[in-house]
Amino acid sequence: MYSEKVMDHFMNPRNVGEIKDADGVGQVGNAKCGDIMKMYLKIENNIIVDAKFKTFGCGAAVATSSISTEMVVGKNIEDALKVTNKAVAEALDGLPPQKMHCSNLAEEAIKAAIDDYKVKKGLKEGHNLDQACSRRCDDIQTHLHDDDLEN
């Protein structure tokens, strides 16, 4: 059900780990939903010079984490914020429909890490990261019920 590229990024994930002196750290999702993505960014002169991740989740969650770290390194933060869930999924040669929400998680993790960087730098007010998963789960539940013709 997964593309070869997804399986490659799952079996050989790029940039797994932590950055001890990261400039921005973002964590999205929660264990209840079955996936958590934590992204570490090293940012120099507005450019992302290194990215690492830790993920608890399914194959698609690991693969989207892996490829999104590759996608943001070398970008300035404005461009990194433009990395969409669609772009992440496309870079993996597509994801099964029921796994598309995993690509949202990658997009949210990038945003959360950049957000954290901005707050630390005093470029932005404090933030709340805990909203992401519950909102996402609710969205998907509603969506599933819409499609449920059985009842």
Binding site: Y2, M7, F10, M11, G34, D35, F56, G57, C58, G59, A61, V62
Partner: peptide, 14 residues
């Protein structure tokens, strides 16, 4: 604990 089942199944499948 700390891991997710589908990932485990994929690794076992490989």
């Amino acid at each position: 604990e700390f891991i997710e089942g589908e990932s485990l199944l994929l690794m076992l499948d490989m």
